[in-house]
Design a protein around this nucleic acid. Structure first.
Lengths: 195, 195
DNA sequence: GATATACTTCACCTATCGTTCTGAAATCAG
DNA sequence: CTGATTTCAGAACGATAGGTGAAGTATATC
């Protein structure tokens, strides 16, 4: 019983996430959050426990979404280089992510920085693990040369993943993306890579 | 005539840069700036024209430093892959940059975002140009295979450069760095890269 | 339809932000 | 030394931030 909410919790969280993502924690004011989410100040406090709680939930929401994307694209069967190529093609080269919310958060040394750091390490490790999984499968089938250091290559791909997210902000050209993608292929040993 | 300043302008600028770098624009409060720079509020306004002016000067200072580093390491003669290797080895794999001040700024949509965006494009283009210069020289001497798309490879290196700056925040392990460096070498066609 | 419940609106509070002002301290020309 | 000039240190300013309280309104159960 009682009055119904005029907002949807998940929808509100998504809007808050986008705002925090774009403007950072301190740069996003409560008034903007109220306007964007449609949740009034009082309910926002009751629902999320204030600005800080809302931020943490928004960040967690983002992480879960990112993890789901990783799992979806890099967890496919059969494992192999195709999964990696598909990941870069469909994430880093199509949607215009404004960098990475989590990484942006790390650069802001506010109160939730410690929690964000833990999340960052965990997510990075997860992505690295998924990359490695596909690289090792590729080595098993002979798709990737067995002498390549798969473990390190996975780390490089993680770094490149982040780099491309940023590159997309500065130079969001599709022409560039296609060309860079071809170079990633070369890195993976596909295509005609000269010795 | 008049009283002497108790601070050094450049020193104060460097301290302000580090603070803004670490905590962002909105996350850095004037009181902290006063404490860190040793410049009192009044003088800070007289000297830099307020918080915004100080930020812009600090950002410019950072850019000039970064550009000088690029020029120094990637502009050396003779041009070639060694310069690129040296750059990554001495910048992205030794000093613990907390990401890139300029890129951090882009993610904060505050009042100087437009100016920061211009600076980012210009700096990125500059780095790309320097990478390309060394790649083309390497192709001329046969150090790098002539069929490689040097232009695109330069772009990839720019993206990787940014990615490694971030990777250094999350996983600042020197063991990782050495291994990743070996993979960068492979990307450049040095070492025993299997076809 | 009465009543209890939960959300909404709106005004207010306190803290703190960036900025400005004021009087004292320090420096240099004459 | 004297006076002009500049910086210094701290208080004070208006604006606005995040958070909270009280009254009103819509909804569900009985």
């Amino acid at each position: 019983m009682g009055r119904k909410k005029t907002y949807d919790r998940n929808e509100a969280l998504a809007r808050a996430r986008d705002l925090f993502w774009a403007k950072g924690y301190e740069g996003t004011h409560l008034e903007e959050l109220v306007a964007a989410t449609g949740v009034n100040r009082f309910s926002l406090y009751a629902e999320f426990g204030g600005k800080e709680g809302l931020f943490l939930e928004a960040l967690t929401d983002y992480i879960e979404g990112a993890k789901a994307t990783y799992d979806d694209l890099l967890g496919r069967e059969p494992a192999g280089l195709a999964n990696i190529r598909d990941y870069f093609a469909s994430i880093r080269f199509t949607r215009d992510y404004a960098g990475c919310f989590l990484i942006n958060t790390l650069t802001e040394k506010h109160v939730v920085a410690a929690e964000a750091f833990k999340l960052a390490r965990r997510t990075t490790k997860h992505a690295q693990h998924l990359f490695l999984r596909n690289l090792e499968a590729a080595q098993a089938t002979g798709e990737l040369h067995r002498e390549r250091d798969a473990d390190t290559l996975a780390k490089l791909l993680v770094a490149l993943d982040q780099g491309l997210a940023i590159y997309g902000i500065v130079s969001p050209s599709n022409k560039d993306k296609d060309a860079i993608f071809a170079q990633v292929d070369l890195l993976l040993g596909k295509g005609a890579l000269p010795a």
